[in-house]
């Protein structure tokens, strides 16, 4: 499903070269739940961005869904992303649209037939326990609800791979537990999950394979 081979990502800040990722290699199989753990600034987000080709590695190869991500054309990148659900720390909900419209929006831009949209949106909202809040605007949601809405938006497209970049980073313990439970359900539904967090305790409670990253280096792969 995912394979990184000796990946380096180096940013240039004037004459200074800053390595964000150094010689990172790992594999994630289909249907796996993998936690990517590391402190803030360790390189988690950089690594995840390489997976959905929001950035390209300076060196090395990134393969996702059997495709060499670095060599994809713009059209192929779009096609790859249609198979990936992404959730961010800030939910990135569109403020001028309701929860329902936020979820429906991505289905519409991907050309989902209109008659299917309502059903799929409500299936996704039910899965995250938000059907009752379908007509609420993002500003009317709690942080946990916003994150659940973002998850609904990600899973409405039935992705093969779910990338969650610190989805619980802004949440208190109770809300974080709810979000994690939903992510587990998505994984149980057959999706491969890559879950990034800076909270080592949270990674431990997930009891899944954990990749620990520190200063851009993969320092541990356990579980």
């Amino acid at each position: 499903m995912i394979e990184l081979h000796r990946v380096w990502k180096i940013y240039s800040v004037g004459p200074v070269k800053v390595p964000a990722l150094s010689d990172v290699s790992f594999r994630v199989g289909k249907g796996e739940f993998v936690t990517l753990c590391g402190p803030s600034g360790a390189g988690k987000t950089t690594l995840l961005r390489l997976l959905y080709r929001d950035d390209v590695p300076t060196e090395g190869e990134v393969e996702v869904l059997h495709q060499d991500v670095g060599s994809l054309t713009r059209v192929e990148v779009a096609a790859l992303r249609r198979s990936i659900g992404i959730v961010f720390q800030d939910s990135k909900l569109l403020p001028g649209r309701t929860v329902y419209e936020n979820v429906a929006f991505v289905l519409r831009v991907l050309g989902t037939p209109r008659r299917e949209i309502t059903g799929r949106v409500f299936d996704a909202l039910r899965a995250v326990g938000l059907s009752a809040r379908a007509q609420a605007y993002p500003a009317q949601l709690s942080a946990g609800e916003a994150q659940r809405a973002a998850l609904a938006r990600a899973i409405a497209r039935k992705p093969l791979l779910l990338i969650a970049d610190e989805p619980t980073g802004n949440l208190d313990e109770g809300m974080a537990a709810e979000v994690i439970e939903i992510v587990r359900d998505i994984w149980a539904g057959g999706a491969t999950v890559l879950f990034a967090t800076h909270q080592a305790t949270l990674a431990a409670t997930l009891k899944q394979r954990t990749l620990t990253i520190h200063s851009g280096r993969l320092v541990k792969d356990e579980g």
Binding site: Y52, D54, V75, A78, R81, I86, V106, L110
Partner: peptide, 9 residues
């Protein structure tokens, strides 16, 4: 968001 979900250009 459109780009992240893979909407055609």
């Amino acid at each position: 968001i459109m780009r992240l979900v893979g909407a055609p250009e």
